[in-house]
Design a binder for these strands. Structure first.
Lengths: 211, 211
DNA sequence: CTAATTTCGAACTGTTTGATACTATAATCG
DNA sequence: CGATTATAGTATCAAACAGTTCGAAATTAG
């Protein structure tokens, strides 16, 4: 009685489903959606062609699954980074640094599956998913800003929604630069500067005078 | 003697080369590089298949030509926007607004050929071109900041290079959001806010105190 | 040990795609 | 007007590709 749940009847699989999805992420990430052939997935995922269709479905289905897995992982890590016990500036800087690190990792493709690859996929469900993911990211940062207000780190009239979308815009910009080959070091420095940009106190009263 | 320059010998072309390139831009822009087939280009450019190969070369060559044409047009317009006679804040805001408008134009695909499509093309020359284009964009904004210092709009110690890369990062972020379907109105508002963000005076002395 | 069940691997099939050859057409030149 | 030149349109070819079929292999149930 090694396992309590009965092992499935037939021949056991020679691949791990979760691991195969991780591999699929890498394949799509490095080659884009249209650039990937089924053979690429067969080779990259270590799953035989018929099993691939039987277990995962066609290319679109595999991509959607990879996308969801990627977004879930990244979202969770980003939230961890944002809400770990530290000051607000370090939270925001950590969030941006994390984005840069993920986008410049050795061994993986540069950039981000969600930002560099998925937007090109001409598919309604992909678009819907991306929109909600983007909104979710901004909402996460916004919540962190609100926590900052509660903690007294920033004044109550801090424009949380605006600053949150600015933070995520900058994150997107950094990620795109990563894709194009800007070195990690440069981007990490820019991440720090961006955190300062959105947070350092400014003279409110001056407002939009002519500059 | 209708034309002074002798018309070429043989049968005249049924297409305008420049217009064909413009059409190619649209095709690549909406479908991505790998998503475009030669038939798409034949249909979209209004050029017969053999003429296409004879005049433009293969898909990669057509893409490079479209990319250069697109970048040249966009770069020139961006510079016009930045250096038209107006205050610094309006120049920067105008630059960002222009990016948003181009990325949300009706009739064209959303987003930007340089930022949403080209980075996925696995080609050394494309990468090199993109890097230099990105650097050129930031340099343009930086020059505008320097002009702003000369004009006394911002203090001489204004971090021109840093702010320039922040402006272009935000522009990239706005463009990506455009691709994902964020409405133009929202993005235009965010463009204005971004101009304020990088320009509004701040209390320098406070620096990186804990927030 | 045999039957049933599930997966694996190789081979197959119809379609799409990139690229080219061939013939017809439209212009200039002498 | 005929020769020359360059493009247009059709047809074609080989390679790549998506998706399926089929027999062999591996495991459990009885």
């Amino acid at each position: 009685m090694i396992q309590n749940t009965a092992r499935p009847r037939g021949r056991p699989r020679s691949f791990d489903e979760t691991r195969a999805v991780e591999k699929a992420i890498q394949v799509f990430w490095s080659k884009g959606f249209d650039g990937v052939t089924i053979d690429d997935l067969v080779a990259g995922m270590g799953v035989g062609r018929p099993s691939l269709y039987a277990v995962f479905g066609d290319k679109r289905a595999i991509f959607l699954r990879a996308l969801r897995a990627y977004a879930e992982r990244k979202g969770a890590s980003a939230a961890r980074e944002l809400f770990s016990p530290q000051g607000l500036r370090d939270s925001i800087a950590g969030f941006l640094r994390y984005n840069v690190e993920r986008a410049t990792e050795k061994g993986s493709a540069r950039g981000c599956l969600l930002e560099c690859v998925a937007p090109l996929v001409d598919d309604a469900e992909v678009r819907r998913f991306l929109q909600s993911t983007v909104a979710g990211g901004a909402a996460l940062v916004e919540r962190r800003f609100r926590d900052g207000i509660s903690a007294g780190d920033i004044p109550p009239d801090f424009p949380v929604a605006l600053r949150a979308s600015q933070v995520t815009d900058i994150a997107r910009g950094l990620t795109m630069r990563a894709r194009l080959g800007t070195p990690r070091k440069t981007l990490l420095k820019d991440a720090e500067e961006a955190a300062d940009l959105v947070l350092l106190p400014r003279l409110k009263a001056i407002g939009k005078q002519k500059l």
